[in-house]
Design a protein around this nucleic acid. Sequence first.
DNA 1: TGATACTAAGTTATCGTTAACTCATCAACA
DNA 2: TGTTGATGAGTTAACGATAACTTAGTATCA
Lengths: 328, 328
Amino acid sequence: MTVSRVVNGTGYVSDETRERVLVAVKEMNYRRNGLARNLKRQRTETVGLVLGDISNPYSTEIANAVRESLSARGYSLFICISEQSEKEDIMAFESLVDHNVDGIIVATRSNTAGDERLTNIADSNLPLVVVGRDFRHDSVDSISADNFTGGFDATQHLVDLDHRRIGFIGAAYENRGSLKRLQGYLKALETHGIDVDERLITGRTETVSDVPGYSTEKIGYEGMKRLLSLPNRPTAVFARNDFTAVGAMTATKEAGLLIPQDIAIVGFDDTPLAIHTVPPLTTVRQPMRLQGQLAAEMLLRRIGGDEFLTTQERVLDCELIVRGSTVA
Amino acid sequence: MTVSRVVNGTGYVSDETRERVLVAVKEMNYRRNGLARNLKRQRTETVGLVLGDISNPYSTEIANAVRESLSARGYSLFICISEQSEKEDIMAFESLVDHNVDGIIVATRSNTAGDERLTNIADSNLPLVVVGRDFRHDSVDSISADNFTGGFDATQHLVDLDHRRIGFIGAAYENRGSLKRLQGYLKALETHGIDVDERLITGRTETVSDVPGYSTEKIGYEGMKRLLSLPNRPTAVFARNDFTAVGAMTATKEAGLLIPQDIAIVGFDDTPLAIHTVPPLTTVRQPMRLQGQLAAEMLLRRIGGDEFLTTQERVLDCELIVRGSTVA
DNA sequence: TGATACTAAGTTATCGTTAACTCATCAACA
DNA sequence: TGTTGATGAGTTAACGATAACTTAGTATCA
């Protein structure tokens, strides 16, 4: 007990005793056992973050922002990767719950089994926040970018530039419905009375199914090639993210076409590389850091707070950044 | 005890009892407490990975490979980010040790305070593996890419193309000595009897000191601008990594110079974007996944194995990938 | 002088598991 | 019939910390 007091700096310990303890600690190379401590104290001052694809700047920016906000409040962060499969999502949740983290931030894509497990976890009163994921629960806060409006704005921008045949690259079959950016694209076309041509919507196929859960350069490259091979090819494409857009640019150039004269291209995310493409990429910026920061704050509010808090759901605005890939 | 047997599927339990336990488990929403379990069992089946900059593909590829290898063996992975500062390194170590992980893989850059703490940890017999980090200890395995030879090869490639004024971009002041790629560059120049011109070696400055620990597009961009403003500008540059190279390419194009005719550029890492630059980037590929995989295997060997294992130190070959940024 | 409060350190019980042990039952077999 | 071994389940004692309580000495003040 006295050792505990010295190590934690709590309670009354005389200088002499403290000194003796510290000497012994150093001598015996003593270190308090965190597990036992956490078990007794019923909290770990640790938060878990579950990320889908860690290779995506979206994830990494969120992670950095989360870490900063948390460490400012004395919490550590453990990140788990789930390559976007239900099984791995759940494994990540389990291992975090097993380590009794004080709360979990989930930034993977929705899936039924995962959502079910999340519901259990939320029911058990473990503080939970979801980022960019569809999930509803009385005691779970959620935060996301307005991908729908972002997709709408990107497409509208192309329409404003008089494009009528506008392709979409990066639709994976399994998430047609949940992909807000695609929905925004469809809505924009509808708003402007442009018929949807299914052949202009492309995405991950079996041939590139070995890639991570998000949309990559490869998907952009192959998707663009397919679009360009159409008899009536598009004059513009909206790529689901910047990586996909970069791949699409490569395919476009290889085909000897000019950007933006022959094909205009819009990306999404405004990753650092967007200003370095040739021409620089028009893209939709989403506030990644802010999402991470808010997620951390919301979680800490639940961790510190009372059990019956109002559910928060924040949708953050995106911003269209116009560059050379759409306007010469 | 019987519940423990049912939950873990160990020992003798009659079907009837098992059934009753399972019903009760479901009814009471029982979940075994991982902390208590780990405390008793003295192992967690969890491994920690400390990454420097999580935004770097180098880190993320390693993380993915580590995760795959570990999960195949039933271990979970907790990733901690340390933005390359001693303090954060140590905080990451502490929190992992506090959670009694079974081993730690460290992939941050060396620093004295961190190394000291690592030594303590290794002394306490916690299995440890370092990746791409200078660190020596009897019971710590290490793995890295041959950055020196990679840097040498990259530079030699430029020399072979008759370049004599070759710049280096991405040297940070604090790691001049430990930056193997820079050492390889210097050695190559020396080997070919080319005098080193300090003005051709550039890197992070105060003006861009707000960036993460690794070298970014911004550093490449600003570094290249500085090099181009020299009275006797280089005809080729070796950038410390692909991001830096991309930034350098942008600056070169802005100056109205042609790549590779006016300036040849070599990067390092062969990140996915290297084939998408214009022209495609000549770069040095390092086996990132293999590093992660081997790190995981080495760690598991120590975790499972006997206390007195030989120290392993592996240095993996890099490969020069020649593309359009050096050869038209 | 006695009540009060502060200081210092020891004792007990508990966090929630599980390893190891005990005990009882029952079947098989020599 | 007694020995052996498999089966089933309960008991005990840790794992290593700390909250809460107790004890005791000393200082403070009315």
